[in-house]
Computed example of a mutant assay.
Amino acid sequence: LGQIKKQFGYKIITDIHESYQAPSIAKVADVIQIPAFLCRQTDLIVAVAKTDRIVNIKKGQFMNPADMQHSVLKAIKTRGGTQVNYEQSQKYNVWLTERGSSFGYGNLVVDMRSLVIMRHFAPVIFDATHSVQMPGAAGGKSGGDSSFVPYLARAAAAVGVDGFFMETHLNPKEALSDGPNMVQTDALIPLVAQLEALGNFVK
């Protein structure tokens, strides 16, 4: 990741899985992301919050969006704050990401109310590609249906969010991970333009 950043000048966001990794990741990443299944893991959130990097906590597929304020508070308290609200989360660089909720077996659904609820206490990023994931639907790995990405992303833009996360690939069928829910690269720029226009209209 350090080589990629140096060569291309990209900002870097990456997951963390163990608390001890935080100092090393902070040397390279601009945003350190708490994976959805670890969003309540106190020691992990605290370890990331002790760095000077943006903390991005992905909402667990099993979580009530309102309960994510407790994860946000763990990060804010570590950084010297005392309360959870949008302004405090902005000040202490703590984000939340919506990536869908479990809906039966092998499927996710996005409740757009979740974006509104969580945005009361933190900037919200909408993960448009993981939200169309179908966990375990591809024979031991996740499947997905990328055809729904533009619709969900435009809906999130109309509701109002602070940013988007989307995985892209020149040829998603050749991707080593998450290919079925990726946006093909040549379709990404037009979609981003639409989302920007919708976001400006909503504002």
Rank of each mutant, 00 (worst) to 15 (best):
D178N: 09
D127P: 10
A26N: 03
N93K: 15
A29Q: 04
S71M: 04
M68G: 02
V94S: 10
K74Q: 12
I57F: 10
F164E: 08
Q7F: 01
A153K: 06
S131W: 05
I32W: 07
V84F: 03
G144H: 05
A155T: 14
K6V: 00
Q61V: 07
Q133R: 12
V124F: 11
C39D: 08
N93A: 14
D15Q: 02
D15G: 02
P23W: 02
G81V: 04
L152R: 09
N107Q: 14
T51W: 02
Y20A: 11
A156W: 08
P65W: 05
F8E: 02
V159H: 08
E87L: 07
H169Y: 10
L176M: 13
Q184W: 00
C39K: 04
M112I: 11
P150R: 08
M112D: 02
D186W: 06
M63E: 13
G2M: 06
D162W: 12
P23Q: 09
L73P: 01
M68E: 05
H17M: 05
P65Y: 03
L108T: 06
I12D: 03
R119E: 07
D186P: 00
L195R: 01
S19P: 14
D162R: 02
L115K: 04
D127Q: 09
F148K: 15
N200I: 12
A175D: 06
V183Y: 05
S146D: 07
T82S: 15
K74A: 05
N93H: 15
P65H: 05
V72K: 05
R40G: 07
Q133N: 12
Q133Y: 11
I117H: 05
K6D: 14
L198F: 14
P135V: 13
A193K: 15
D52R: 10
F37N: 11
S71G: 07
S71D: 06
H70T: 12
M134C: 13
G163I: 13
V28L: 05
L1C: 06
V124A: 11
I189V: 14
Q90W: 01
V159R: 10
G179M: 07
Q33A: 05
G2F: 00
Q184S: 12
K59G: 09
Q61D: 03
R40F: 03
L108C: 04
F8A: 04
A153E: 11
I189M: 13
V46I: 15
G144D: 01
R40E: 04
V84P: 07
V192I: 15
Q61C: 03
A22I: 07
L96F: 06
L73A: 13
K5S: 01
C39M: 04
V46K: 14
R119P: 06
F121E: 08
I45C: 05
T129V: 13
P123C: 10
A137Q: 13
P35T: 04
A158L: 14
I76K: 11
H169P: 12
I76D: 11
A122H: 08
F103D: 06
N107A: 12
V28E: 10
D52L: 02
V149A: 06
F103G: 07
D30L: 01
A49Y: 09
Q7L: 13
M134E: 14
P135F: 11
M112C: 02
V72D: 04
T97V: 02
D67H: 10
M134W: 00
G106H: 09
G106E: 11
P190C: 09
V183H: 04
L38I: 01
V202W: 00
